[in-house]
Design a protein around this nucleic acid. Structure first.
Lengths: 215, 215
DNA sequence: CAATCGTTTTTCTTATCGGAAAAATTTGCC
DNA sequence: GGCAAATTTTTCCGATAAGAAAAACGATTG
């Protein structure tokens, strides 16, 4: 009845440890440093670095701390992969209205730049229709973070475990989108909002997705 | 000629390791778990957890990975001290105008949610002043991607290697911000834009910062 | 071929880590 | 409040892996 899969010693090239090692090697090579140069900067032995980068060794906290300082990054940065496949130098312009629509009776969302795949951010233009509060959609939950700003009108933000908040034109919101959330027009008129997510929202409109991640 | 101070074995209560340990203990107690409960969830020994939480031991990568999974957090989250990261479930509202300003003769940028650190996205409100095109700023370059939408007025986008583009109200732009770029008001009046970056732009207005980190 | 540079392997010391006993803390009961 | 039982945490010790120093290996260049 073990909860987490115990990886005691993994030598396969796709283990987390091997990936971590490749990330270390990338960080070093990005800077044009050799093993011995990083060894000098970090105070670690060359052999240690070599084994760590190849995933043959499991660095201890102390060594990782030295390593992070030697590289010049935050400790957390060692564990946040940085690869998005947005091609280097990319550049795209969208004219007003050139959007891909997703529509329900309650709202219209138009994704900007649908032709760019794997964006680090997904900007969407939303129109929340002034509507009866009877047939509401369910909370939406998806991984990542979300930014919202009210362009026209006013909206009510329902967030799981929070009292409803009213945002007026120019107000904005930043939230962890794994917390259940739902937007609705607050006034008698339609509201226009701009939403930017860090990850594409693949959830379907209605069903309450019960894939409970992180309490 | 060592660059980073080597902390081989530190037993003082204010070492990074001790702080890390206290953070681990907090994460566990927040969930109301005992050492043996976390031991079962993570697959680590009780004694190991005890020593790690007191900073008497330097956990290896493999154990930290098991631990993170047992606790149910991302590896990086173990290293992001509480106040400074966008914690899971976070939720923040900014009223119009509650921004941190950065001003030059040509523009005013106001960062939204300056109190939230380590956001995945950095939304900023910008006012581009109608100005002579004589004293222009230089291209700006920073890692990450950038989204822009014109809220009021019209702007001209200068991007390195591209012909200038004019964006009007409602138009938007998505670019790799490592490509040199520069925005200016296009008309005779000021323009208002919303910019969202994937990483904080730490570049100073004018001077060419030569502290080359990751090209 | 020699020489240099970057990486890997070898050898040896020391620390991590798991298991179980000991100590400390909390809980139950009168 | 006090004492005993149960639970939680810490300490002790042996097996195994981390980590430093140095030698070996491979590639590149003069």
């Amino acid at each position: 009845m073990t909860y987490a899969a115990p990886p005691p010693t993994a030598d396969d090239p796709d283990s987390e440890r091997a990936q971590f090692g490749r990330r270390l090697r990338a960080l070093r090579r990005d800077r044009g440093w050799t093993l011995s140069e990083l060894a000098e900067r970090s105070g670690l032995a060359v052999s240690t670095l070599s084994k760590a980068e190849r995933g043959l060794m499991s660095l201890t906290y102390d060594r990782m701390l030295q390593l992070a300082r030697g590289i010049g990054v935050d400790m957390a940065e060692l564990f946040t992969p940085d690869g998005t496949s947005f091609a280097p130098g990319s550049f795209a312009v969208a004219a007003k209205g050139e959007f891909k629509r997703q529509e329900t009776p309650n709202y219209v969302y138009e994704m900007l730049f649908p032709e760019i795949r794997n964006k680090a951010m997904v900007p969407m233009m939303g129109t929340l229709k002034a509507h009866d509060l009877k047939d509401f959609d369910d909370f939406v939950r998806h991984p990542g973070q979300e930014f919202l700003i009210v362009l026209e009108g006013a909206i009510t933000v329902f967030a799981e475990g929070k009292a409803p908040v009213t945002l007026r034109q120019g107000d904005s919101l930043y939230l962890d989108s794994s917390r259940g959330h739902l937007y609705a027009s607050a006034g008698a008129q339609d509201a226009r909002i701009l939403v930017v997510c860090t990850e594409p929202d693949t959830t379907e409109p209605a069903p309450a997705d019960a894939s409970g991640s992180r309490v």
